[in-house]
Amino acid sequence: MSLPSALQTLANYRTHNTRASQDVLETGVEALKANAVVKMGDDAWAFLEQLTLAAIDCGRLDIADECLEELAKTFPGSTRVNVLTGIRMEASESPEIVLKFYDDQLQEDSSNAAIWKRRISVLRRTGKTEKCVEELTTYLDTFYNDLEGWVELADIYSFCNQYTFALQALSHCLLLAPQNPFYALQFAETAFTANDLPLALKMFLVVVDMCEQDLSTPTEAKESVPSGISVRAWYGVKLCCRRALGRSATSITSQSNTALPETKKLKKLDELATERVLTAYSASARGAEGKGVVMAWMGSNDY
């Protein structure tokens, strides 16, 4: 690959935030040998940062150190370089030393979000979940609109079986990205796990509703094949309906006081969900084997 095209690929990775570390490392080292840093001008620094991260990913700490040295020389005291240094330290040093480093950084600038997030991730990695949750909530209290932070918090809570808290964290995700059906799906699945059947059913239906906005007429809708996230949502609808129909109405509890649709509607939804999931499988190229399993599951009564 020629140098300009290699640099173009790397720039593409940067703009799309692609983490193709092995590829970046190979191309990057070539470019580094060809002395591209001098030719790139101001792009060089972003490239060096990218190469450092890729090198750490692939365990080539020598290359990472080389790039980092270059960056530290050009930008002494830059927070961005400090974050990189921290990541580099995480690769080889013990967590205590890294935490100490991050603490020092935070002492200097208490509103440095990037360093703070790294610190939280180290805390989680080393198993200090309690401290990690505490830090993360303080962080999110300051930087409310950090979507990733809320997803992470929800993940930690789910991990600890604290589904109510996880749902609360996810509701902030829904507020921050109401257009993203994946968060709604995660919310629905968490509600299902938390045994809040009516809420889960509603949220699965919301996901379906979001994903199939473009189907206008009933015939068009019937002929369409669910794909991607909506298959999973239909599965969820099916699961919820079957559970709800299989139990007496009094035994279904909802922490969030969500009302279950009437039995008549539930039956219709159950039929529709069955039909939709089967359509998804019969149209796909995954073969008859998958379809057979799904058919058997649909017919069975155990859940």
Binding site: K202, P218, A221, K222, L269, L272
Partner: peptide
């Protein structure tokens, strides 16, 4: 947004 979402989904499929 979940209020009456089941009706919306059912009516989209003509049910």
């Amino acid at each position: 947004v979940g209020d009456g979402v089941e009706d919306r989904v059912l009516s989209r499929y003509g049910e």
